[in-house]
Amino acid sequence: LSAETVLKISSWLPPTHSVNTGIFANLITMMEEATGGEVSGELVFGLAPPPAQMDLVLDGAADMAIIFHGYQPGRFVGTKLIELPGYEGNAEDASVAYWRVYEKYLAALNEHRGVKVISLNTHGPGQIHSSKEVSSLADMNGLKTRIGGGVAGDVGSALGLIGINVPAPKVYETLESGAADAVAMNVGERVGFKLNEVAKYLYDMPGGLYRGSFAVIMSQEKFDSLPEDVQKALDEQVFGEPASRMAGASWDESDTIAYEATKNAEGTKITPASDDDIAKFEEISKEVTDKVLAELQEAGVDAKAAYEMVKQEMAGN
């Protein structure tokens, strides 16, 4: 019953993280089913830090990995398209739209050169989690917040957030010590980062302030070494849109669990954005979108058309 090929999947996230228990676990099942058990996978943890993952795959130290595009500034521009605020819909909708717009517009940029992209996905909407109460956008002015770069950083500075730049594993101690008041993350991360202990307040903007962009990548060499029928089965039944949809759904699931956990935790509070704030945020959203679309245009994408396509796809899903 043992598989012909067991792919080594490198993961930099903790074993209990939904990327491992959801996305990778599902991906392994999907590959096994599609290939009649010929291709399977196993996780290897902590081989190298996040920005090294693509090198690991390029050089064969791992066959598969997940990368967060924001960790490699300068390398990825096209991927910012999906990070923009203002799209309506959950992570599954966004991930499917992401794959489609990638095939049509972004793939030509060849930003993942050297590896095979097998899933593109975004986590759920990024929100503000804070240790002191934030009940409106105005409260964010001057709030010391750990926030990523790229689109998230642009939104943050438009909101008047003061950026505290520490790596993700330092989030808990940074909030606990008061060196930061808040962190911008998808809601699902509340569980893993124990935010119910150190960031009891969640300000909830519909569609989020930004989204994070991920790709699951595979060694091209490894893929080419597989028998042709196996390659075909994987390409048709697993890789691409199916794997992207699955990953998005898995991010959504982690959000649902975290919302539930937050509601049940002691002393926590979820504040939905008011209509006023939603309208105000639309302006910020537009500014940031214009800026990013200009960047994309410069990189050689028909930015406007690509943006419209994502909007339409997400509305239609």
Partner: peptide, 14 residues
């Protein structure tokens, strides 16, 4: 690896 990083245009965030 440094040359590879150069070909991808990697820079420090800030």
């Amino acid at each position: 690896l440094a040359e590879r990083s150069r070909s991808y245009g990697d820079v420090m965030e800030y």
